[in-house]
Design a protein around this nucleic acid. Structure first.
Length: 821
DNA sequence: AGCACGCCGACT
DNA sequence: GTCGGCGTGCTC
């Protein structure tokens, strides 16, 4: 109380914020100091602010506070705030710091992951006259300039600061040239303004501005004004009317405005929280758990109650009821008033899990996915921040949700590769989740039928508690799997992509009026176009891959850069007419199925048929209503859904992923086959699966045919150990990009030399490469890879930082890549 | 990223 | 002598 206000003021004025400026550049990775002005005295760590930076304005994140003012440089004040509370909690900030260190990205890059969109502000150039110039000098310079700049200057003289868009409206096409003239002569100054990006959406409603009794008396006076009378009468009844509903009562906005002017009614704004999944399910509580599920839950609940970090791997076969376990665990977290993050590989493919959560938790659930607009994302996150929602379900980016009191992170299908971000920074959701839960004293629950090798190995080592569900909930049996050797098919003279056993299975299934799913992991019609005369294969001009023929549009398309061209009739090289289409994609398979089973109703699901929002949902929904007999598509048909009448699954080519020169190809194949097979026989009818392959003796294929994860794991882990691949080592992939092939190679060679010199005494590290990526060119950019394999990457990472490889624009780093190609 | 500063070659 | 190329360095 006695402390003088002067003293208080002194401290307040000297408060300095350390701000991480949200810059796109990779070569600036440091925090900048800004003064906290008195008007923003409430600022604290974690707030998003607007700061001046050079001549421009940027968003910044406060990462630390200090009292002292060092006088080495001028400290500019913070301009504004973005939100009404801190965006980053302490643990979010710590997680961001960890990400930047672990994945070698800037702190700004890491912090950007936690906000909707790339930046919270939109900046625009603005102009004003240079202050304190002598009138005579100005006149003299102006007189030498053309009329346009003179006119612009006169305008700016009478207006404080004007944004570029406004000047363009007034002065048209000459604006920029005129401004450049004025800038060159230093008559005007350019700055930037910052507008807050996340403008919350509002609805406007009308309310009475006077007490109802008073309004009653006014009704009489409005006899000659029927519309105004109607509105007033309505408001006496309903208290509030939305603008959007006014038309139903035949009241125009003008009528409202008249009454507003008269002071009888007023406008009220409500913020709309956009929620595209609103009303998807109703609350429903009666669930009986199987003894197995109950046992599992009994392990997880105590950990939740203790509020200490603990991680679990829930290994449950397909159809064993993992989702119910997630729901019970989340319910326990909600009981403690803590919040939950539930992660799924791809939200479009897993709407069933969303409905299950909605059924149980209703409006407490917020759904996030990549197709949400920045505004929708902002609203969803705001609901979590304000704790008006307690559960977020979403794809990998939802791991960054700003929940204030985290109790659990669930990762469903934790082995899925979509959890790894393929753009910079290449984070893995599982690792970020582990860090966040660790920092918050929360539970991490990983679930899968085919856990990733890393996770299962970690569980074996005691780093996760292993929980197992090995019975299907409805006691349905796992499907019968038949492996078809396609070499034998060929020997018997069958050339169709559909083998005899698969054709038989489909015929039987159709006869019983049951449904079938067919997996073919190649889009389009024909996968390459070849000239029989000269052997030319049509390749993309920008990428070193063959173009794929799409018959729906009669075009050739590149699946890497999306370039397309009309399908040619003659060979572009030798003009021969012997141009032929080879390789079967989903479109051609659809056509063939139509020929073999003309009566069958076939629906195709792949990237081309699901480009619209929610198209997956519609296809799955109509297939599950029995409107189609056969669902055919790429790997997206293998995920998540649970359709009781599906009794047959066909896998056209089990080898497509197996033959890639990547140490994870067996794992990839095993999990895809097991997931796909798991779609069959989920009801009371037995399921049957046909796997077509040229490698019938491969352990990944054999193990998946017997649904035996353990068998696969034991063989795969031995292979990894003997070759010292993860989890027995850590990998780092370095990609050098260039539009010039030789440049890419020579840069890569130089990097290998530099690193090799630094690491020559490091026996545990191996540098592999440089080698050209298998698809050497994508989008006119040549790529050369370097792979570093080590027991422990820490030393390598510090070398990379020392050599500044992490801030080079022609080098991309991928720490622990899932894909080494 | 942008923008200023600065050091070399092609012109009025 | 000046204009303008883009290499280098800085932004609290």
């Amino acid at each position: 109380m006695v402390k003088s206000s002067l003293c208080m003021k002194g401290i307040l004025m000297n408060r300095i914020a350390q701000v991480c400026v949200n810059l796109p550049a990779r070569n600036i990775d440091k925090v900048f100091s800004y003064a906290i002005p008195e008007t923003l005295h409430f600022l604290d760590i974690g707030w998003r602010v607007v700061v001046p930076f050079g001549s421009r304005t940027y968003e910044g994140f406060i990462v630390a506070l200090s009292e002292e003012t060092s006088s080495e440089y001028e400290v500019k004040p913070i301009i504004d705030v973005l939100d009404s509370q801190a965006w980053f909690s302490d643990s979010m900030l710590q997680t961001a710091k960890w990400i930047s260190e672990h994945y070698l990205c800037t702190l700004a890059e890491a912090m950007r992951l936690f906000i909707p969109g790339k930046t919270g502000i939109k900046s625009e150039k603005q102009f004003g006259i240079t202050p304190d110039l002598e009138q005579a000098v100005v006149e003299q310079i102006l007189s030498r300039l053309p009329l346009q700049p003179q006119a612009v200057y006169d305008y700016l003289k009478t207006h404080e600061q004007v944004v570029l868009s406004k000047l363009k409206k007034i002065f048209g096409d000459y604006t920029e040239a005129a401004l450049n003239d004025l800038l060159a002569n230093k008559l005007i100054v350019r700055t930037t303004t910052a507008k807050k990006r996340a403008v919350p959406q509002f609805t406007t409603s009308v309310r009475l501005a006077i007490p109802p009794e008073e309004a009653e008396t006014y009704l009489e006076t409005l006899a000659g004004k029927p519309a105004q009378k109607r509105l007033l009468a309505l408001l006496l009844q309903k208290e509030e009317v939305k603008y959007s509903d006014l038309s139903t009562w035949q009241i125009t906005r003008d009528t409202v405005n008249r009454l507003v002017k008269a002071g009888l009614v007023k406008n009220v704004k409500h913020q709309v929280l956009r929620n595209s999944y609103a009303g998807m399910g109703r609350r429903q509580q009666t669930v009986r758990l199987t003894p197995e599920q109950q046992q599992t839950i009994d392990h997880i609940i105590p950990a939740i109650d203790e509020q200490q970090y603990r991680s679990f791997l829930l290994h449950g076969i397909t159809g064993s009821g993992k989702t119910q376990v997630y729901i019970e665990a989340v319910a326990a977290v909600r009981q403690q008033d803590r919040q939950a993050i539930v992660l799924v590989p791809e939200i479009a493919l897993t709407s069933q899990i969303v409905s299950r959560f909605k059924e149980r938790f209703g409006e407490d659930v917020v759904v996030m996915h990549s197709k949400l607009s920045i505004g929708e994302r902002h609203d969803a996150w705001q609901r979590l921040q304000e704790e008006s929602a307690g559960i977020v379900i979403g794809a990998r980016s939802a791991v960054f949700s700003p929940v204030t009191r985290l109790g659990i992170i669930v990762i469903d299908e934790e082995h899925e590769f979509t959890y790894k971000q393929e753009e910079q920074p290449h984070y893995h959701t599982r690792q970020v989740a582990a860090k966040r839960t660790e920092l918050e004293g929360a539970v991490l629950l990983l679930g899968s039928a085919t856990p990733s090798l890393e996770t299962y190995y970690a569980a074996q080592q005691g780093r996760h508690v292993l929980l197992t569900l090995d019975k299907r909930i409805d006691h349905s049996l796992l499907p019968d799997v038949r492996i078809v050797d396609m070499r034998e098919e060929l020997a018997q003279g069958r050339r169709s992509v559909i083998s005899a056993p698969l054709q038989q299975l489909l015929a039987d299934t159709l006869r019983r009026q049951e449904q079938a799913i067919i997996l073919l992991n190649r889009r389009g019609y024909a996968t390459f176009v070849l000239c029989r005369e000269c052997g030319h294969i049509i390749k993309c001009k920008h990428c070193s891959v063959s173009m794929v023929y799409h018959n729906s549009s009669n075009m050739l398309r590149c699946h890497y850069c999306q370039a397309s061209c009309p399908a040619p009739d003659i060979c572009p090289v030798c003009a021969s007419r012997y141009i032929r289409y080879f390789g079967t994609g989903t479109q051609k398979l659809e056509e063939e199925l139509g020929k073999i089973f003309p009566q069958a109703r076939v629906i195709r699901m792949d990237q081309d048929s699901t480009s619209r929002k929610m198209a997956h949902d519609r296809i799955i929904a109509s297939f599950s209503r029995g409107e189609y007999d056969i669902l055919l598509g790429t790997q997206m048909v293998a995920k998540g859904h649970d359709i009781k009448n599906v009794t047959a699954v066909g896998i056209i080519s089990a080898d497509s992923a197996l033959n890639l020169p990547d140490f994870r190809s067996a794992e990839r194949t095993f999990s895809l086959l097991t997931q796909a097979a798991g779609r069959a026989g989920r009801g009371d009818k037995a399921g049957q699966v046909v796997i077509q392959t040229y490698n019938p003796e491969h352990y990944a294929i054999m193990a998946s045919s017997s649904h035996n994860y353990e068998v696969f794991y034991r063989q795969e882990i031995e292979a990894r150990k003997s070759l010292q691949y993860p989890p027995f080592s850590e990998l780092l992939k370095l990609t050098v990009y260039s539009s010039d092939e030789n440049q890419a190679r020579s840069q890569a060679e130089q990097i290998v030399r530099q690193l090799g010199k630094e690491l020559q005494h490091d026996r545990q590290t191996e540098i592999i490469g440089p080698f050209a990526a298998p698809i050497a060119k994508i989008n006119n950019s040549y790529r050369v890879n370097i792979l570093i394999k080590s027991k422990e990457l820490t030393n390598i990472k510090s070398q990379i930082v020392a050599l500044k490889l992490n801030s080079r624009s022609d080098v991309l780093l991928d720490i622990e890549p899932l894909n080494i190609l």
